[in-house]
């Protein structure tokens, strides 16, 4: 049994009087895929925002590979190896596909002003190796997209944008990937394709753990080994998909009851 990569204990977030996360305990082991489900407003995205340092927890602890995430800036959390996608795509639409993917590769790029202005031949080598790398990554999702690396991200369809966003999150080879509703706005067929491509990438990155927020139950069933169910900021069930789907509380809270 491998170590917990991410562990939350008693994690709470409040917005004024609203309790968005209520003493949440959660563990993600290295290499695991955890599905996170629950009705709208149950705290799933809030959890992502706490893990990535956008929100501050009011109580409890969140640890990533032994480091306490409280007090870490989003930048340091990224550098530690956590990346994410957003529920509503947050690409830089006027920028090219390559630019968007490279935003995700920030920690591997040289940012010195002198280097960027005056050591152009070294920058060029860095640019070329990164272009080859980004192209290869994008090509695992779509060869057509990989052929249009310098077109603006805004020129592409929803599924392509989602692919770009996932590539942006994967390019730095993170240890933990947080996917916030990757299927939103896509057809079943498109979602299926995207998940297959994602699993293909994961097979090349054995240490990668994924937490995926999803409303499409067939996605959860197919890709997740375990899933956790949130309701009103509390975890009401955890286990395999079959286990949680059979849980009476989950059925009432989420899947609907007669």
């Amino acid at each position: 049994m491998s170590e917990a990569l991410l562990s939350c204990s008693g994690l709470s977030v409040r917005f004024g009087g609203l309790v968005a996360l209520d003493a949440l305990d959660l563990e993600v082991r290295s290499g695991a895929i955890l599905g996170l489900i629950g009705p709208n407003g149950s705290g799933k995205t809030t959890l992502f925002n706490v893990i990535t340092g956008i929100y501050r927890a009011a109580g409890g602890r969140a640890q990533f590979s032994g480091q306490d995430l409280a007090g870490m800036t989003p930048q340091r959390i990224y550098a530690a190896g956590v990346t994410r996608t957003f529920q509503r795509s947050r690409l830089a639409l006027p920028l090219s596909v390559f630019d968007n993917v490279m935003i995700g590769n920030h920690r591997r790029l040289h940012h010195g002003l002198w280097f960027n202005l005056f050591r152009r031949s070294e920058l060029r080598r860095e640019f070329e190796s990164n272009l080859a790398k980004a192209r290869a990554l994008v090509a695992t999702f779509s060869a057509r997209l990989a052929g249009r690396m310098f077109d603006a991200a805004g020129a592409f369809s929803m599924i392509d944008r989602r692919r770009i966003e996932i590539c942006r999150a994967l390019v730095s080879e993170p240890r933990l990937l947080l996917l916030d509703e990757p299927s939103a706005g896509m057809t079943h067929e498109e979602t299926r394709e995207l998940m297959d491509d994602l699993l293909a990438v994961r097979s090349r990155l054995p240490g990668l753990s994924i937490v995926i927020i999803e409303h499409e139950m067939n996605v959860i069933e197919r890709v997740c080994e375990r899933c956790a169910v949130l309701n009103y900021g509390r975890k009401i069930a955890e286990g395999s998909y079959a286990q949680v789907a059979a849980d009476r509380q989950v059925q009432i809270a989420y899947l609907g009851t007669e």
């Binding site: 990535t52 340092g53 956008i54 800036t73 989003p74 930048q75 990224y78 550098a79 990346t83 994410r84 957003f86 947050r90 690409l91 830089a92 639409l93 006027p94 920028l95 630019d99 935003i103 995700g104 920030h106 920690r107 942006r168 730095s172």
Partner: peptide, 16 residues
């Protein structure tokens, strides 16, 4: 450009 277009997304990808 990343800072101009979306500060939150930029921060999440390590951009200061």
């Amino acid at each position: 450009d990343a800072v101009r277009l979306d500060e939150t997304a930029a921060a999440v990808f390590g951009i200061d």
